[in-house]
């Protein structure tokens, strides 16, 4: 096994650590799915993973390419229809944690996956929100994982697909939301958490070997750093080998026609 840990591996491992056995987690596809399954295969074997295709308490052996791969249904405790998924389980308030990715994020952890440019005449048409608008409001807390860069971490979003902390402060509460919203943004360089009062994302931990300047340079807004910034613990041998095993199984499975 290579001892060099890639930034993406560090991101996935740090994101997995944010989850516990007690979580009932609504899983987004891509980076969130890798993190959630890594958690399940390491320190959180009893975590409940739910995909919006209706598969509940699923234990895939390879990472799904889509949100509804057969693997998810075959390994689920049970599978419900999509209306039931969104009505009873998500809107019903049964889900403790929503794990989202996005194309763009702002300092209050609002996400854009809809358009770049004007909505009616977009420069880039992105896939859209899918389940995210209601995941963001109905789950107990939200974790976000995405790679940093100035095109992704932007001063102003062209479109708010799903609300994080809105304009900051008590904006969520003013809209009647009782859920916490985003509690951490786990990137390939660092971990950010919202300031308890202003809700502005603040760097609380930097991954090993990453310079503070590099973190600041990868954000489109002037990033706030906590008074005491921790160093993210390096990946353990177990975390790395479990992650690389599932990625290898996944690559093999997705190549097979």
């Amino acid at each position: 096994m290579s001892e060099t840990v890639t930034p993406t591996e560090m991101m996935t491992i740090a994101a997995a650590r944010a989850l516990t056995n007690a979580d009932i987690c609504f899983v987004g596809i891509g980076a969130p799915s890798a993190a959630c399954n890594l958690a399940r295969l390491t320190h959180a074997p009893d975590i409940t993973l739910i995909y919006e295709s209706g598969t509940i308490a699923t234990k895939p052996d390879v990472l799904p390419l889509s949100i509804g791969d057969g693997e998810l249904c075959e390994t689920a405790l049970f599978t419900v229809s999509v209306p039931e998924m969104f009505r009873y389980w998500l809107q019903g308030g049964r889900i403790t944690t929503g794990f989202l990715g996005g194309a763009q994020i702002d300092r209050f952890a609002n996400l854009n996956t809809t358009v770049v440019g004007d909505y009616a005449h977009p420069k880039v048409r992105l896939p859209g929100g899918g389940g995210a608008p209601e995941i963001a409001s109905n789950c107990g807390r939200i974790l976000i994982t995405m790679a940093m860069g100035t095109r992704a971490f932007v001063e102003k979003l062209p479109f708010i697909t799903s609300m994080g902390h809105g304009e900051g402060g008590d904006h969520r509460a003013r809209l009647g939301l009782k859920t916490k919203g985003p509690t951490a943004v786990i990137t390939d360089l660092c971990i950010m958490e919202p300031d308890p009062l202003t809700k502005e994302l603040t760097v609380t931990s930097i991954h090993p070997g990453v310079a503070r300047e590099a973190v600041a340079a990868a954000s489109g807004w002037p990033l706030k750093f906590a008074t005491a910034v921790a160093e993210t613990p390096a990946p353990t041998a177990e975390e790395l080998s479990v992650l690389r095993d599932i990625q290898a199984r996944t690559r093999h499975a997705h190549k097979a026609a």
Binding site: E134, T161, R172
Partner: peptide
């Protein structure tokens, strides 16, 4: 969309949900 299909199946004119809070759509 899921609620709107369900409303269609239930022969109702519209669906309601606790949704789109703080979103631009």
């Amino acid at each position: 969309m899921a609620n709107a299909y369900e409303a269609g199946a239930a022969n109702l004119p519209f669906a309601m949900l606790r949704g789109y809070i703080g979103a631009d759509l």
